[in-house]
Design a protein around this nucleic acid. Structure first.
Lengths: 193, 193
DNA sequence: ATCGCCGGAGAACGACCGTTCTCCGGATTC
DNA sequence: GAATCCGGAGAACGGTCGTTCTCCGGCGAT
């Protein structure tokens, strides 16, 4: 089936990643609690025993999925920002990344916000991961703001715009939220530089 | 049968409201799926049979809770806005209302965003109610913007700021998000008036 | 006093949850 | 060839979910 002897550790890690990606798709599309272990097992194409040999519990899968989503998000944002030119354009690139994301058919809001609403009150680990994800983004924006020579107060404002665009696009089903947020960001940046 | 007494209808409506308020507290604090009917029955102080005589299903209770939250939100915002003076102050009053809300110990984000993340993919009725709630807010902001004589593009920008402040305050546990959003709103308003 | 009805309390029900266990076929090792 | 181990498949387990049903005590009418 899969390739053979590149090392037991590598294939084990591959299997784990495969589960994480499958779980991510299902959890994100339908909600975490709506997807049972049996459905995840079926979609992953493995036995329940193997699934539980890869992860000790569903909660650990959820945490791994969130960590994976954080990496995807970070990679996507930094790629888009890296392709931009001036420090100001780099700030605005955040909203271009959001626009790309919102255009995806499967977009259903920020997975961390969704997970926080669903499990944050009941699973401190999930709440912590969501908090760390958002704090990381705030730091990232703050760095870009500093690089643009803008005052520090601009950073939380731009971050709030990005957050609001995500929930607005998700619930209103309105992908233009990215464009609105971008235009607001332009105004805010222009006012202080 | 039993036609005359208008009081019977009133107490039935009282009982319904009591269930809705109890359910609202529980659902908002811990998540909808985390609260079972038996716990709601116990907290409401009534029998399961009576509970099911007041509402046909849990989903109907959830929808009633969301409708109730929408009324509370609308009343709170309009009260704060109504107490403000100039059209510009009325726009900024939105963020003062958010600041009051965020300061509440039990604040755990926007109940509609939470419900949407938890059940939106699985319950179209919940998704619709969340969408209507947000659309209603967008219209409200648009009216205030029009009254202030500002261009229409300002409205979605201010709404996005309000949305972002809610999720940021909820996840980061950071009540200052209201102040940041308010300052951003001041800048945006100032730029176009 | 007796009957019939109503609503309260909570047991019961079937479904499904996350997790564990049993069974078994096939590869590995002497 | 025989003993041993490993992992696959999925049944089983205890618990909880939303919902329904049974039982029973109180009460108004006759």
């Amino acid at each position: 089936m899969n390739d053979g002897d590149a090392g037991a550790t590598a294939t084990l890690e591959d299997a784990r990643r495969h589960v994480i990606e499958t779980a991510d798709d299902l959890y994100y599309a339908r909600g975490i609690q709506a997807v049972g272990m049996d459905e995840l097992r079926r979609a992953s194409g493995m036995s329940l025993k193997r699934l539980y040999s890869l992860f000790p519990s569903k909660e650990q899968i959820v945490l791994a999925v969130l960590a994976h989503r954080h990496e995807l998000w970070t990679a996507g944002v930094t790629a888009k920002v890296g392709a931009a030119g001036s420090p100001t354009d780099r700030l605005l690139a955040i909203y271009d990344y959001l626009a790309d994301w919102f255009a995806d058919d499967s977009f259903r809001g920020c997975g961390f916000i969704n997970a926080f609403g669903e499990l944050g009150a009941v699973s401190p680990a999930v709440a912590d991961l969501a908090r760390e994800h958002k704090a990381d983004f705030q730091r990232y924006v703050a760095d870009l703001v500093a690089a643009a020579g803008a005052p520090v107060e601009l950073a939380p404002q731009l971050a709030i715009l990005a957050e609001g665009a995500q929930t607005t696009a998700a619930i209103a089903g309105n992908a233009e939220a990215a464009a609105h947020a971008r235009r607001a960001a332009e105004t805010l940046i222009h006012a202080v530089t």
